Amino acid sequence: MQQISEQTLLKFEHYFHEVIRERAGDLIDSQKLELPKLAPILNSQDSAHWFPIPGMYGGFSYWFTVQDQQVALITESWCRVVGGSGQRHKITGQGIELLEEGFV
């Protein structure tokens, strides 16, 4: 994987946390959950990581990838008791892009 500067990593994390808060902010706040840090997974051998949200009946799967020679964070989130709740986002240092929704 390409190197990511600390500043860029913080942008990725900011946007990732924005997606999480948009989808599950009330649950995050009511349970005082600490949002996941991205630095520990940069050199991880795991292909994907999981951030469960109690009460959401689901959560967020996320991983780094390289697309078009650019590092991106892909995240998929869903509530398993709500059909069609799945969303897939691509996060870069420039922002968030919704890639797909309606699965799961």
Rank of each mutant, 00 (worst) to 15 (best):
F51D: 02
A72G: 05
H17N: 02
Q67N: 08
I96S: 09
E6C: 05
G59N: 09
I20Q: 01
L10S: 09
R21I: 04
Y15T: 04
S30A: 10
Q45C: 05
A39I: 03
G83L: 13
K11Q: 15
L99V: 13
F12D: 03
L42Q: 07
Q31N: 13
K37P: 01
E34M: 04
Y62M: 00
A72I: 11
D46R: 15
V66M: 11
Y15D: 05
L10I: 02
Q67H: 12
N43F: 10
L98W: 08
L27H: 12
E34S: 06
Q67A: 05
T8Q: 12
F16D: 02
G102T: 10
R88P: 03
G83H: 15
E101P: 07
G93W: 10
S44A: 13
I4C: 01
I53H: 06
K90R: 15
D29N: 15
W63G: 15
N43M: 05
S47T: 13
H17A: 00
E97V: 11
E101H: 10
R88S: 06
P36V: 00
R23C: 04
V19D: 06
Q2F: 11
M1Q: 11
C79L: 05
C79W: 04
I4K: 01
A39S: 13
Y57G: 06
K32L: 14
V82M: 06
S85K: 10
Q67V: 12
W50C: 03
K11T: 07
E34I: 00
E13P: 00
G102D: 06
I96C: 08
H17E: 00
K32G: 08
S30N: 08
Y62S: 02
L98R: 11
I91M: 10
H14D: 08
V82Q: 14
Q31F: 09
I28V: 14
E76P: 02
T65A: 09
E97P: 06
P36N: 01
T8E: 14
N43D: 11
Y57F: 11
L98Y: 09
K90N: 08
K90E: 13
E100K: 07
G59S: 05
I28D: 04
V82L: 14
A48I: 11
Q2H: 11
S85M: 11
G58H: 03
L33C: 07
F64D: 12
T92K: 15
M56R: 14
I41V: 15
H49K: 11
A24I: 08
E13G: 00
H17W: 06
S61V: 13
T8H: 11
G59Q: 02
I53L: 05
I20F: 01
E76A: 07
K32A: 09
Q3V: 12
G59Y: 05
S47A: 14
K37F: 00
L9N: 04
F16N: 03
F16E: 00
C79I: 09
F12G: 05
W50L: 12
I91Q: 10
L38E: 02
L10V: 04
P40T: 00
D68P: 04
I20M: 03
Q45P: 07
S30G: 02
M56K: 15
P52T: 01
E100I: 10
W78C: 02
T8K: 13
Y57H: 15
E34C: 04
E13T: 01
T8F: 07
G58F: 03
F12A: 03
D46A: 12
Q67M: 08
A72T: 09
G95M: 12
E76F: 09
S61P: 01
T65C: 03
